[in-house]
Write a protein that binds this DNA or RNA. Structure first.
Lengths: 135, 135
DNA sequence: CTGCATCCATATCGATACTG
DNA sequence: CAGTATCGATATGGATGCAG
């Protein structure tokens, strides 16, 4: 993994350019960031990391998500090759979602971010208290 | 860094619960994810990682951001202790923003995410082509 | 120079109802 | 069961103008 402390100035400049050029709609970095950002993506990925699951099972596991958002999140992930959708020709129909290898692999950097957040949660909380105290 | 492959089922369940419980407004993980998500945070952090800079210098470095959003982004980062704001009593006034140690440290996991995105950009692009081809 | 306040367009999301 | 379609509330973000 890249160490920020040893990241060259040029590397940083390059990253940055990559992040904010023209529109950004097609920037892979911007795109992943948006993915991770969106409210449900991470939760769906983590839920699927435990086991492939059917649509309604996912809905039950993530009680706060609406069908609309679950569908949309799954489609986005499918579109980007992170999630595989498999339809069983039963009656009534059932559809199973699972992580692809790509989807598995993105959980590692996301995990790093989550670890960081847990590690520094108290620092942030303290900073906010401080900020409000002055404000 | 945590290896997703060796993450215990219990760890994952815990993470997950931490991510989607009640409202989430106060969940530090959810909060960081939103931060990283928001369009400008990452760019501002990376720009400041190169050098402490004044408000307008940041604006010039990130041409697409509006004053409104730049202010807001900086305030959010300041509030969470990632960015320090220092006012110089000159005329006209000048304000310098810089990364705190906390802000420096978050660049590492963010960098991991960016590296992942660059590494797998082609996979994702291919997946999309495939997805559109079927539709 | 640094920023806040306001207005407005658009994007996002939840709720609901309906379908194969 | 697994979605799609539609509507409306809310959030988000850009543009502009003003102020210390």
């Amino acid at each position: 993994m890249r160490d920020t402390g040893t990241m060259s100035r040029l590397d940083r400049l390059k990253m940055q350019r990559e992040l904010h050029v023209a529109g950004l709609e097609n920037c892979p970095v911007r795109n992943l960031l948006d993915h991770v950002a969106s409210k449900w993506t991470t939760l769906v990925l983590m839920e699927l990391s435990q086991a492939p699951q059917r649509f309604n099972a996912l809905g039950r596991a993530l009680p706060d998500i609406s069908k609309r958002m679950l569908t949309q999140t799954l489609r986005d992930l499918e579109r980007d090759g992170m999630v595989a959708r498999r339809v069983f020709d039963t009656k009534p129909p059932s559809v199973e979602y699972s992580l692809t290898p790509l989807g598995q692999s993105v959980l590692q950097p996301i995990g790093a971010l989550i670890d960081w957040a847990n590690l520094h949660a108290e620092d942030i909380r303290a900073a906010r208290v401080q900020f409000e105290a002055l404000g």
